[in-house]
């Protein structure tokens, strides 16, 4: 199966907004038995609102570690991480949970939907943790699902949906709390290429709607959709430049 050509149309590039993420000198060490693994060796990165960023790198490059760090799932061993001006490195588990809930919309390679809940209930989940009342949750979840084109599949469970539809539910879930960034980890990795293109078109659309997109991938075709590509190798940033250069 040949990958479809990259879109030829001229793409919008929105001017960068205020700084959302600023990391500096971030290192991360893991202890595996007696060995210490250096996953990140002093990374510096600034991400502004309205950016569309791809993080690339082969496996073992520290890409996943950086993504976990950006997603506030993990804290750095050393270094500074500010999210909207707040120091994340020193936060407790619950404070991190709060940031993840309000500021970050996750899109996973394996969708990570709750299998026994309807699309609507899945999208409502972050709103429960944010403390919204039931009627407001419902209204916002419906709005988010309609935004990703699933207004007619809201009451279906994940196993009644196609892969592309599942990922759309996951994207609606990521959007529903109006986060500062959308953080997608190999969002097309479990999809056929045509569906993958559809999802990337949806990302384009979300970018145009004013969302800040960060996509972690090892596929050049996917990264090409971004406006800026950061490449990692062996725990260091190898290059950081606009896409197409």
């Amino acid at each position: 199966m040949t990958p479809p050509p990259a879109p030829a149309v001229a793409r919008t590039v929105r001017p960068p907004g205020p700084l959302v993420i600023e990391i500096e000198g971030v290192t991360k060490l893991y202890k595996m038995g007696s060995e210490t693994i250096h996953a990140l060796l002093g990374v510096a990165l600034k991400i502004h609102r309205n950016e569309y960023l791809a993080i690339m790198g082969p496996s073992g490059s520290g890409k996943s570690t950086l993504m976990n760090m950006l997603g506030c799932l993990d804290t750095p061993t050393a270094g500074r991480y500010e999210f909207n001006g707040k120091h994340v490195a020193a936060m407790s588990d619950d404070e991190l949970a709060e940031i993840r809930n309000k500021e970050i919309g996750f899109v996973f390679q394996t969708f990570n939907l709750l299998p026994r809940s309807t699309a609507l209930a899945n999208v409502e989940l972050p709103l429960i943790y944010a403390g919204y009342a039931a009627h407001e949750r419902r209204a916002r979840a419906i709005e988010a699902l309609e935004n990703v084109g699933l207004g007619n599949r809201m009451h279906h469970k994940p196993n009644e949906l196609s892969g592309g539809q599942r990922q759309r539910v996951a994207i609606a879930r990521a959007l529903v709390n109006r986060p500062s960034i959308i953080l997608a980890d190999e969002p097309t990795g479990n999809l056929d290429s045509r569906t993958g293109v559809e999802i990337m078109e949806l990302f384009e659309q979300l970018y145009d709607q004013g969302n800040t997109m960060i996509v972690v991938t090892h596929e050049e075709d996917i990264a090409r959709h971004a406006r800026r590509i950061v490449r990692l190798r062996d725990g260091l940033i190898e290059s950081d430049r606009p896409a197409g250069d």
């Binding site: 997603g71 619950d94 949970a97 993840r100 996750f106 990570n112 989940l125 972050p126 943790y129 944010a130």
Partner: peptide, 16 residues
């Protein structure tokens, strides 16, 4: 376990 990870990523606290 994976569901717990997902819930935590979506903002579930320890208490939740």
């Amino acid at each position: 376990t994976k569901e717990i990870g997902t819930r935590k990523a979506l903002g579930a606290r320890r208490r939740t």
